[in-house]
Amino acid sequence: MPPKLTLGPILFHWDADTKRDFYARIADESPIDTVYLGEVVCSKRAPFFERYLPDIVERLERGGKTSVFSTLSEVMLPRERKMTTELCAQADRMIEVNNAAGLGAVYGRPHRIGPMMNVYNERTMAHLAARGARHIALPPELPRTVAAEMAGNARQIGVALEVQVFGRIPLALSARCFHARAHGRSKDECQFVCENDPDGLTLTTLGGDRMLAINGIQTLSYGYLNLAAEIEDMLALGIGHFRLSPHRTDMIAVATIFADRLAGRSDGPTAMKALGALGIGPFVNGFWHGLAGHLYRDQRVGTGLA
């Protein structure tokens, strides 16, 4: 099967119009194969977009894309439990489960396992596969060495593996909303201030380095993950699905650059140069190389750190 380019769920609180325009362009103009839909960070945001989802799915399908519904990554409150079980109960949908709260409802039915589900070893993978998991997104902190071991096992049991290759990296979750806290509010009184920061709110250390980006209850890397130079290696390992995490930069351009890499139409340096021209970054790839996640290891020099 040829490698697939996927678009992860929108992690940030974009307004409904922005999201509709975004998905319309993805449907019509992008070389993306699979689109993950749904709110995975904050249950309070979900109602804003729910009613547009059927149209979006139809539009994406007309564009030849496969839609997958992602569940919340933190499930605690009654409304979060309800959202998760109701979504997972939709037998006609392909579901990506991001919290163990959803596993019961998809039991025995083909489903996907999201990157928040902590699949770090072959035994976990086999256990989930035996209960219907057909596709697993690896945790972003997983280094190449571990991914390689996983890929060998995944092939044997017929599980597809996905790895995030672009975008800020989800690093932590909390019950507390850090966006609200930054504005001196509590989560219940947040007034959706996270909407001001469509790529996250930057946290700079007292040493002056821009380190993290907060997004409601989620903490992301400040650096943008970029594994464009590692694509051949990942393909050789047997990774079949490559996830782009949505940002407000030109995602059509990003998708095109990665699609060219997957199809062998461009090389690493060309892709890196094109991505660099988008004015985002800094780029990081440390996790994949078993290094601190905020570092970038340049493939051309082999061992050097940028």
Binding site: M116, P139, I169, L173, S174, F287, A292
Partner: peptide, 21 residues
Amino acid sequence: GLMVEGRCSLTNYAVGISTNM
């Protein structure tokens, strides 16, 4: 601990040592 435990890669992002692994 206020981060959801078992779901935090902050140390690994900063220094390359994983809390989970």
